[in-house]
Design a protein around this nucleic acid. Structure first.
Lengths: 338, 338
DNA sequence: TTGTAGGCGTTATCAT
DNA sequence: ATGATAACGCCTACAA
């Protein structure tokens, strides 16, 4: 079914059908209704490819997600879902692209083929080839996370440095003197993953400022790694009484290792982190954590992107989310030294 | 950058460029190389909209996911990720559509606008309006789950009836005489959600065949509901010593409620279910469960769909996954009656 | 108030 | 081995 057929059956020209639909030119009420009746009967909708070709825009947004060989974290998944819903609300379609860098096939297809009006890039690195590529093409984009030099780009991010800082302060306030940071994987850090770097910096600063001892451990994004990591911490640093972490996926393992070591939370050991709310509440006991507002972030990312698509010359917007720490039941006063 | 510009700079016609790229007509090696050099220099890729318009296909697949007001389960998320990767391997783009029925805006846009060559529909109901709609349009699709009359359609599904049957048998073999099924939510069942109905049937059959007592409970898809549900079971049916479930999202709550009731797993209480492997392993102790092969399912769905797109007249393929039950640590002999 | 016609970038048919 | 040209379906400037 195409616009010509609708025109024929309504006894008008194709342009009249087009204008009746778009409202960009006056169409007599009688004609409009006649056309509408035909459209309703045949269930016509404009062909998206033809329209995209003519208009030079696709009404489609792209969401670039990290390939899932390494599983997505819960907050990443929540973010994807919320982007999907936000795009839907804006009547935009969403194209998913599993790409880590600018030569990945999916990225090539979407960007090179002009498949989208704009892109949201997840898990951005401090120095990310996709960003420079998109800048060169003048294709609007929003990054989740900042590059090392984020001034001229449009981004949203979570202020991991401040959040870990707050966790350390909270733990120090409770009397903990030996605190471990469970960061994300060594590979991720080596690849220049911002949150991990900024968590490290926030931790180092806070620890220094509060005059407590801090040790940092890298940990892969899964429960088993979390378990091993905690065992390692307990072995190498038995004086540690509190853990802070941005490694959400490791949480179940952290919990299990502490349990198996007979360290009750929060009586004998405290844990405070950064996690999706849902995940924090799965922890047992529920985790005192900065709840990453994944749903807000998705909506904001889409907002920003739509603005850049609509008005490419406006200054790029940026937003740093600093969610408050929700006090739950996983932190308590440091245990008396044995 | 378009094909005309490449043609001009290579000193050939547009058709030659097109043929050099597609290989559908012989092009002299010299010309081919000259064209390729220009393409490499300018980074040309064919415009997807123009190509889709001309070819009548979009090289894009659609994945219809349930809107996330109710959060996606882990196995659904794994499935989405695996579809994404499988589509990427097939050099197809993936459009995500959050739609529950055939009038949802996103579904309308994608289907009406001919945005995709085929669709994968998640969380299909026994009587699903989207299916009839797509059949009428002759748009290829694969459903995850079967409708009530699945003969002529292409689908993949998990055999929940058999899996729950096996769980019940396993528990009965261990001496359990009073077994509860924690199903999914009452609303989902009311809406005609197949897995919940088939789990119910499988449970009723197995319980009858083994001559044990079975009680069924509905439970929303979250940990809190799981916790409440177990408390309710323990209160109303204190004789129950084992639970079987397809409600993955309720697992953390099930675990917590049993723990809080002082019922050690598996010494005092057994649990066997159907879940994503990752999730089964998060359970404590690790859950004896049929591991839903979400990754295989995603790949299979894409395979089937590509086949239907390529060859619409071939008989629609179907596959019922019956993953084996992985024995882990959450089931044991029924406790001696008190 | 409505119709005609051109062009968006491709692919493919027909001609050379 | 290559070129000219039509057509995919839509939108919109121009004409009436």
């Amino acid at each position: 079914m195409n616009i010509g057929e609708i025109a024929r059956r309504s006894g008008v020209s194709r342009s009249t059908v087009s204008y009746a639909l778009s409202g960009k030119r006056a169409v007599s009420e009688a004609t409009r209704q006649r056309i509408q009746a035909v459209i309703d009967e045949l269930g016509y909708r404009p062909n998206a490819a033809a329209r995209a070709l003519k208009e030079g825009r696709t009404r489609t947004l792209g969401l670039v997600v990290p390939p899932t060989r390494r599983r997505l974290t819960f907050m990443q998944l929540e973010f994807v879902a919320s982007v999907m819903e936000a795009a839907d609300r804006a009547d935009l379609d969403l194209l998913l692209s599993p790409s880590r860098d600018d030569h990945d096939r999916s990225f090539e297809r979407i960007v090179g083929g002009r498949r989208v009006d704009g892109l949201i890039l997840m898990e951005i690195r401090l120095d990310d080839p996709r960003v420079t590529r998109l800048q060169g093409l003048r294709l609007p984009f929003v990054t989740i996370g900042r590059t090392a030099r984020p001034q001229g780009t449009c981004w949203i991010d979570v202020d991991y440095a401040t959040l870990i800082d707050r966790c350390v302060n909270h733990l120090a306030d409770l009397g903990h003197r030996h605190i471990a940071l469970i960061n994300r994987s060594a590979e991720l850090i080596a690849s220049g993953y911002g949150p991990a770097h900024r968590a490290r910096e926030g931790f180092a600063d806070a620890v220094a400022r509060r005059g407590v001892e801090g040790v940092e451990f890298c940990c892969a994004d899964d429960a088993a790694a979390g378990e091993t990591c905690v065992q390692e911490i307990l072995r190498a640093h038995p004086e540690v009484t509190a853990i802070t972490t941005i490694n959400e996926a490791a949480l179940p393992g952290i919990q299990r290792a502490l349990e198996d070591a007979g360290l009750n939370i929060p009586a004998r050991f405290s844990v405070a982190g950064v996690a999706a709310r849902y995940w924090a509440e799965q922890f047992h006991p529920q985790l005192t954590a900065a709840d990453v507002p994944a749903v807000d972030m998705g909506a904001t990312a889409v907002d920003f992107l739509v603005e850049r698509v609509t008005d490419p010359d406006a200054p790029p917007r940026q937003h740093l989310f600093v969610p408050p720490i929700s006090l739950r039941n996983s932190t308590g006063p440091a245990p008396a030294p044995r």
